[in-house]
Nucleic acid binder design. Sequence first.
DNA 1: GTCTATAATTTGATAGAC
DNA 2: GTCTATCAAATTATAGAC
Lengths: 180, 180
Amino acid sequence: MNGTASSIVECALRMIREGGYHSFSFRQIATELGVKSASIHYHFPTKEALGVALTQRYTCEFLEGLGDPDSHGKPLDFYIKAFQKSLVTHQSACVCGVLAAEAGRLPQPVREILEEFTAKNIQWLKKGLTKQFPEMALKKKSEAAAAIFSALEGAITFAALTDQPSHLDKVGRWIKDVVV
Amino acid sequence: MNGTASSIVECALRMIREGGYHSFSFRQIATELGVKSASIHYHFPTKEALGVALTQRYTCEFLEGLGDPDSHGKPLDFYIKAFQKSLVTHQSACVCGVLAAEAGRLPQPVREILEEFTAKNIQWLKKGLTKQFPEMALKKKSEAAAAIFSALEGAITFAALTDQPSHLDKVGRWIKDVVV
DNA sequence: GTCTATAATTTGATAGAC
DNA sequence: GTCTATCAAATTATAGAC
């Protein structure tokens, strides 16, 4: 993806973080980038195309940022820190958490990427828990992975809403406290 | 609130569950109720007024449905079941979870009701945990309440996205398993 | 690649008749 | 309380010049 297309995606991501998929328009992006909306359509013919590109980009970068669970001494601690860093950097919820809440009015391809993102996060956590807590039973690991992902997605959403990063910190502490 | 205003609120709530605050319009509600959009404006002069009414209505009913934590034998189990029932009934996330994700583009009064909802849920859980687990330390209770609320809000959102109620069930089981 | 110009639709909202 | 009629603005999207 070239520089202009990249700027468009980044701009759209900022707007989604602020208020969701329906809170960015081609004209707003154009204005912010100092071009006309027709130029945005040159790079992304439809809003769905931009939505797909941006969701793909976000999920890929998020998963790349996590790396391999086995490359971390304490994968769970690393995973929790990733959410905390995201909150202080963007002062907003996870883009996929925001989009998931609007699922019913999202283009089907975007929804599919979100489902994939969910599965991959849970898979990552299962592997990470296996490394950090080798004694944990398989069934419990499966439930823990689903719960930790959900708890952090929920926590970052409501921490952003109430402007209280401490809410996310609390949830992170509790997870680490009870997970063993 | 009279019958017509009530029907409008219920209709708007259905649409919000499907795709968020920006996914309902006065015209769509009017069409669904078999009237004209000007009639909706008679009951709710602005979209913000309807947004406030609907958020207030939802949060009040949700909290009324919970009742007093002390009136339940196992408040935590009851709280988890409330989310499960909501998911099977509406096949969607919690209205407040949906709205929270769009926080940056919501009218300020709506955001304030959401913040209040968050605080009251956590307060309810703290009280409920005190009853069900009297030996739990205060600090841990505070973290557990924040985490359980976040986990269930996140879980119902992603369970609705992936159309897998079992995801929410898993999270509920894990919470009950580790909370003690 | 970016522009001007424009089409078709939708949105929130109002005035005034009945 | 509901209607018709209407407004100004915003939205996604396209055609064609430069």
